[in-house]
Amino acid sequence: MEEKNREGAVSAWDRVQIARSADRPYIKDFISRIFDGFLELHGDRLFGDDRAVIGGIAAIDKQYVTVIGQQKGRNAKENKRRNFGMPNPEGYRKALRLAKQAEKFSRPILFFVDTPGAFCGMEAEERGQGEAIARNLFELSDLRVPVLSIITGEGGSGGALAFAVANEVWMLENAVYSVLSPEGFAAILWKDKKRAEEAAEVMKMTAEELKGMGIVEKVIPEPQPANIADMDDLALSMRREIRSFLKYYQDMPAEEIVRRRKDRFRSYGVFD
């Protein structure tokens, strides 16, 4: 652990804290700075409109894309409305509806991932949280349009993966992505929540480590930890990267787009 920090670099646990910080930009902050316009669309057509998930149509350089992601709140009132960015099943179903709509009208899909995880409540179970996430993984696997997921803060477990079945997954430098929270990991494997800091190291959940393991394609640098007060440069660099992603996939046949996405996931198999 000492070794890893020898450059005076930020520890994994520091990054967990940065990723969870209330100063960190959320999807709405990114949308307003990266895109030229955004039309939000609501509802899953089955139960309701989950405010922990935002989705709609955005424009970038005269190209339309569908943008979907979790939205956290910055204060108690907002967090009540946004459920701390933890979607219920209707949030995943809204996302899937918008993703299928994007496919129908040939719009590329951009997911912005920032969630502690899918909500663990009674109503969520009653309405099929597991089914909702499973259905997303199933349907997103062969969508015929390019899909990009950018993990901007917390990429928590299946609740994040449901928005990350993509052709490419990128992470902001201080974002984290893991099978569960370091607190949960420490509680399960060591029966001691207080060892979360150590767990964060062991789990290899930072952008750089995940890129090294082939789980993400790109790490977007944060010269300073991303902060809503000063995020224009970051938004500009994200806009540039997104444009080149869109350009790269622009003329690719749908079959090829699907094949590449599938191959990407097939590669996460058994190895030595």
């Binding site: 996931f265 097939r266 996460y268």
Partner: peptide
């Protein structure tokens, strides 16, 4: 659920298995 000791690779199996079922379904 997930195999904690395998971290993020355990998570990826959810997507892989769902993808295989989609092909079987298709």
């Amino acid at each position: 659920g997930a195999r904690m000791q395998e971290g993020i690779f355990s998570l990826m199996q959810m997507a892989r298995t769902a993808q295989a079922i989609k092909e079987h379904d298709e």
